[in-house]
Every structure is written in C-alpha cells, then in structure tokens.
C-alpha cells in the first residue's frame, strides 16, 4: 500500500514539474522569436545570415520530419527531397495561378502542398511494407528521382501572361515569378507547429506504436499492432511536413527548379538526422541549424569550405564512434557537452 502512495506522490510531483516545463518551453519559443526579430530589425545580422533564416527553418522542419521515419520508425529514407519537391511545385503552381490575398493564398498553398506530398507518402509507404534497410533506402531514392523526372517532363501552367492566357512552361525550366511570401516569421511559426506536433506524436499512443515497430516489428505484431498501417502513417506524416517545408522553401526565392530537390538534398537532410542523433528531435534541430550555418561560417576560406565540410563530416562520424568518445560517454557531464555529437542512443 505504502509503495502505491509513494508512486502517487511522485507522479503528482512529476505533474507539477511537467507544467513548469511546458511554461518554460513556451517562454523559450517566444524569447527565441524576439531575439531573431530584433537581430533582423536592428540590422545586427548581415545580409548573408539574414538570407539563411528561412533555409534554417526549412531544414529544421525537414530534419524533424525525416526523424519520424528514420529515427522513430527506423526506416532509412533517401527520398525526403522528393516530398519536398512535390510540396514546392504544388504550392508554387497554386500561388502562381490563384489570385487571392497573399496570406490566405500562402496558408492554403502550405496545406495543399503538404497534403499532396502526404498522398505520395502513402504510396511510398506501401513498398516500405515489403522492403527493409538498404533496399528500402534505394527505393525511396528512386522515388525522389522519379518525381524529379516527371516534373521535368510535364508542362506546367505558370500564371497568366499580359493577354490573360495561361502560360505553359516546360517543367525542366522550373517555375519563376513566384511570390516570395516566406519570411522568418512564417517559417518560425511553421517550425514551432511541426516540432510540437512531432514531439506530441512521439509521446502519444501512435508514437509509441511507431517506436515499438522500430525496436521489434514481430513483437509489435504479437501484441496486436497492425504494423503496416502504422508504418504508412509514419511515412504519411513525414511526407506531409516535408511537403510543407517544400512550399515554404519554394516561396523563399522567385525561381524553383526540379534539380534543386534531387537526392543530394535528401542526403543533406539525412545527415542532419544522423548527426543530430537518431530519434532525438532536439538533436535534429541543432544539427540542421549548425550544418546550415556552417558553410557560411566557412566562407572566409572560400574554395576550401565544401572540402572542410566533408572533412568535418567524416571526422565527426569517426569521433562519434571512437574509443575516445566511448570513454567520454562514461563521464556524463562530458557527454552532455558533446550533445550535438550524440549519435543514436
């Protein structure tokens, strides 16, 4: 009996501290926004760094959403840029051809881009039921390339010309004249929503199911979980947010091209997730931010910067898996210091 009381007491304490954590998080979210907007308002950031704000936000959304599939469901996906591409082109086609008030148009474009990407996510989730590991990885990569090839092949209606006729553009040329709706406020609101949803998802019934499938799909089936349904669910959710990220990134610059969203982009996103730590939302956020800013920080060394990036990437992976690192892990305070370098669990 007494143990029962104790657990109740401790769970009460837990509930109280949980409320404080929620309040702290809300304050943090607002504080970060205030800091960013004052940095922009008072011209503390130079032009190059200002231009990075939207890409950082987009990359965070991409990394967090890919983490749902790769970190929590445990399936390697190399086609995340494909969903992004679908979002970007759907959104741009919508805003180019519609004549609505800007804000409304952009919100609808975001939801539409996400939805269409989610529908494709459903279709790519189906092979994921039969394939595992490297085989699924190559299928997702193939999917991204198919999307790219099809967009290149299509003729796209790209707004109206002066005479009021619909202009048709070959997909290879990409779309141009897109309204650049996306600014740091838009992307910040979107990324907060995406992060909250993903974090809530993971701590809900559905999130637990998704993680249980990663850990042991057969055991998951044995406790009555319809594994296929939840695998597809994870792909659909991730695709939806990748589509959202696509719409936002597509409205950050006036021109988008199918080649902007090839497998190299998918690989970039995967690198965020892996370096940030599989299954760690916090890690994804930090890694996406740091790795988006890094090339800019390396700008002074000009031509060498991408080379440095490659070397850093290899060095980080080697360091993460070295004996030295394993030694650090035993000392917990040091492990916290190297939080960004956290890999896996």
């Amino acid at each position: 009996m007494s143990t029962n009381k104790q657990t109740k007491l401790s769970s009460n304490k837990k509930a109280i501290s949980k409320t404080w954590i929620v309040i702290f998080k809300i304050v943090l979210i607002i504080a970060i926004y205030v800091i960013i907007s004052s940095l922009v308002r008072f011209d503390i950031l130079n032009r190059q760094y200002k231009a990075l704000l939207v890409p950082i936000g987009v990359n965070i959304i991409l990394a967090v959403s890919l983490n749902v599939v790769t970190g929590f469901l445990g399936e390697l996906s190399l086609g995340h840029a494909g969903f992004m591409s679908i979002g970007a082109f759907t959104g741009a086609l919508f805003t180019l051809n519609m004549d609505m008030p800007g804000t409304l148009e952009f919100i609808i474009a975001i939801l539409l881009g996400g939805t269409i990407a989610a529908i494709f996510g459903f279709f790519i989730g189906v092979p994921a039921l039969r394939l595992r590991g490297d085989y699924l990885a190559i299928v997702t990569l193939a999917f991204g390339e198919i999307i790219k090839a099809i967009i290149k092949f299509l003729n796209l209606p790209s707004g109206k010309d002066a005479a009021g006729n619909v202009k048709m553009v070959k997909g290879t040329m990409g779309l141009s004249g897109i309204e650049t709706y996306a600014d740091y406020t838009w992307v910040y609101v979107a990324l907060v929503i995406v992060i909250v949803i993903c974090a809530n998802l993971i701590k809900s019934r559905h999130g637990r199911i998704i993680t249980s499938i990663r850990d042991n799909y057969l055991a998951a089936e044995s406790i009555g979980i319809h594994v296929s349904r939840y695998k597809i669910l994870a792909f659909v959710i991730a695709a939806f947010f990748a589509g959202v990220a696509g719409v936002i990134s597509g409205h950050n610059v006036p021109i988008i091209k199918p080649n902007d969203y090839d497998y190299n982009k998918s690989i970039d996103i995967l690198v965020f997730v892996v370096l940030g730590g599989m299954g760690s939302i916090k890690g994804s956020i930090i890694a996406a931010t740091v790795l988006t800013v890094l090339p800019e920080i390396l700008r002074p060394i000009k031509d060498y910067r991408m080379l440095m990036y490659a070397i850093l990437l290899i060095a980080m992976m080697l360091f993460n898996n070295s004996k030295f690192r394993a030694g650090l892990n035993e000392n917990k305070s040091l492990a916290k210091l190297t939080g960004l370098l956290k890999f896996g669990r």
Binding site: L76, G133, L270, V271, V274, L275, L313, M317, G344
Partner: peptide
Amino acid sequence: APPLAVLITAIG
C-alpha cells in the same frame, strides 16, 4: 559502428 554511421561517412 551502426550501418547508418558508415553510410554518412561514405557520403562525406
């Protein structure tokens, strides 16, 4: 190391 770590290194 986990296969993904090797994959990322190869990408590097």
